[in-house]
Design a binder for these strands. Structure first.
Lengths: 169, 169
DNA sequence: TTGGAAAGTCAACAAGGCTGACGTAAATAG
DNA sequence: CTATTTACGTCAGCCTTGTTGACTTTCCAA
């Protein structure tokens, strides 16, 4: 039924979306995501960490001082899951957890200098691949890439994503 | 060092790749991938399956009759890991494993009618989101999206990816 | 002031990765 | 024809990272 449906989005676009083409997009996501995580994975493995640690480090770096609950919402896991990861990062001296001044139930999360160093190592590796891909594809492609990804996000995360500064075009 | 590096890719491109912008791309991948898997995940959960089952089903559908070893290479997991998943799919009557006619050591994998049905259910859900994202972003964006993803893949998988038919523009 | 809600921690379990070892049948090299 | 290699399946056991349930500590509102 969806075979070869011409876009009905207002007329002038020439989008011709066959199921085959959509499948290609789906597989592209799958394979690209593998490439996307490959470099950090190697660095993490050497330290005995996994992707969960990477995600925690990334978002703590992104918004230092945020509480555990906030981070929980961004990562979309249970607090028990996050806690395990956080525990090892704190024990290893990469993350610091400070009791809230106003509300003492809260824990505010920060990267230590060692944590910052690992963060840089990881994001450098990931940026290298991203930069190479961008350069290969050209600026037009990059804009399109970002647009499609944004449209694929769930609305809540899209809002969170958009709320973060961009650095100017 | 990588701060605000202007693209040095030949001159005329106006790519201005700050670390901030690259980070945005990285987070876009992370959040979009979550959205990308959300719909199938719900369908799978109702059946007691996980993403591993989805991947197996997807690639068996994509290339019916392929052997276990071939599938192993595409999925990038160990034989034991794949076997666990394949076992349950075969036992549940979604996948059929036929002994090779020429080489009887090989097992060729096919979806049964029931397997095809689940495949369609899963890919319909995923295509719906993909189609909506494409429509939102427009045809130019779609081309760029695919280009960047392709450039991010590891070379082996890129070749495999490109070797599959596209269905025309 | 007390009772509920919220934040965080601990315990235990499941899915799905991994390695290593082993068995069997079929193909192939010598 | 024999010996090796290949393709596949399976057992055992480990790790990461997800889950739910139960438990403090702290805050706040009735």
């Amino acid at each position: 039924m969806t075979q070869g449906a011409r876009a009905r989005d207002g007329g002038e676009s020439l989008l011709f979306l066959t199921d085959e083409q959509l499948r290609k997009g789906i597989e592209a996501m799958f394979f690209a995501y593998r490439g996307f995580t490959a470099d950090p994975d190697r660095i993490l493995e050497a330290r005995g960490y996994g992707r969960a640690h990477h995600r925690a480090i990334h978002f703590i770096h992104r918004a230092p001082g945020q509480t555990v609950t906030t981070l929980l919402g961004v990562l979309g896991v249970t607090k028990q899951s996050l806690n395990r990861v956080l525990r090892s990062l704190i024990d290893d001296g990469l993350v610091e957890s400070r009791v809230g001044r106003k509300d003492k139930r809260e824990r505010h999360l920060f990267l230590t200098p060692a944590g910052d160093e690992l963060e840089r190592e990881l994001s450098d590796a990931q940026r290298r691949r991203m930069r190479a891909a961008y350069r290969n594809a050209g600026p037009q492609a990059v804009a399109g890439f970002r647009q499609v990804l944004e449209a694929m996000m769930d609305p809540d995360l899209r809002r969170y994503y958009q709320s973060m500064k961009d650095g100017g075009s």
